[in-house]
Design a protein around this nucleic acid. Structure first.
Lengths: 182, 182
DNA sequence: AGCGGTAGAGACAATATGCCGCAGCCCTTG
DNA sequence: CAAGGGCTGCGGCATATTGTCTCTACCGCT
């Protein structure tokens, strides 16, 4: 049978490259778009089984892509991914038809399982346990997130600490420690 | 015309009393239930226009009430209210058919407007609102992640602690605290 | 009844964090 | 040039959070 086709809409260079490789490696076919217009073109020409949308693309959100995707293929599954997660946007995304919503940082396995998993617990029958992966530890998650934000602010520790709402001294101390193994 | 009828499902004595009064004062008819069974009885005998459900009722969640409510009156609007808000539970609630999701503390006006608010999708497209661009604090991220994993393991605290590689006692203590505002 | 898993909570030591202050460095600006 | 103003690294100390261990209790199963 054909490979399943995933649409990845993400404006972060590094992340989209890594993610694309991870998906290809898992034997999916991947199309990538860096903005809404590119995405719309792809949606017109191709039928996608899945879509991974970064919520904020430069100026606006990717929520406008949900309708076209569902229209093109009503059985496609859509995952909204964002580094700026909030309950409000999550609620909005789901109402608009997204199938799941995930906060970054998340690794490829998490993303994939959020995309594919049947999150509807009401019919929680015998689940094929094959997809049971272990979640990131809180330490690891914290480390990843700190690195990401730090990078976003060009290594400025003071600014990063403010954004993270933690004390600069605390961030400084955390950074002196080693990255967490797992 | 008749007063609109609201079902309030809430196990906190004080809060439900205050809320009931606030709603009555705004000229709604209010029925109150402190647990799932009471609520189901009321749903069988009455048609509700609105429902305000506290997510955590003692041991269980109130999500099981969504289906009966919608069945009884498909055009009713359902608001999920919780003191332990997280993206995971919000996504789940909306998928199950809730119309909105709100974190406590919230005053009567907030609750009411979340309940009756017109979630018109047309304004979602033009919606600039992308100004909410600050990364999550590490605390908030941690809370969200914990909720997600906990949900994945059906609320099993011991197992979640193991997966998260944190001490069960620590997780236990974290869960007793309130989620971080932002 | 006994076993194994889970949950809640007390107690106390080991760590981590918040919050001070200080000094050194680069900028920009008057 | 001197005076801010922001950033960094770090010492010290009070307070908060964890890790650990221990007990009790509540299932569900055999």
């Amino acid at each position: 049978m054909d490979k399943e086709h995933i649409l990845l809409v993400e404006d972060d260079e590094v992340f989209s490259r890594v993610m694309t490789h991870a998906l290809l490696h898992r034997d999916y076919e991947v199309s990538h778009a860096a903005n809404e217009d590119e995405a719309l073109l792809l949606i017109k020409s191709t039928l996608f089984d899945y879509a991974i949308l970064d919520l904020n693309l430069g100026g606006h959100t990717s929520l406008g892509l949900i309708a076209p995707l569902k229209q093109s293929n009503p059985s496609s599954r859509i995952l909204i991914l964002t580094g700026y997660a909030s309950i409000t946007t999550a609620v909005e995304a789901i109402k608009l038809g997204a199938d799941n919503y995930l906060a970054k940082p998340a690794d490829a396995d998490e993303i994939l399982s959020a995309l594919i998993a049947d999150t509807d617990k009401s019919n929680a029958t015998a689940h094929p346990e094959a997809t049971h992966l272990e979640p990131m530890s809180v330490r690891r998650l914290e480390w990843e997130h700190i690195q990401k934000v730090l990078n976003e602010y060009d290594g400025n520790i003071s600014e990063t600490a403010r954004q993270l709402k933690m004390h600069r001294r605390t961030l400084q101390r955390k950074l002196q420690k080693r990255p967490v193994a797992k």
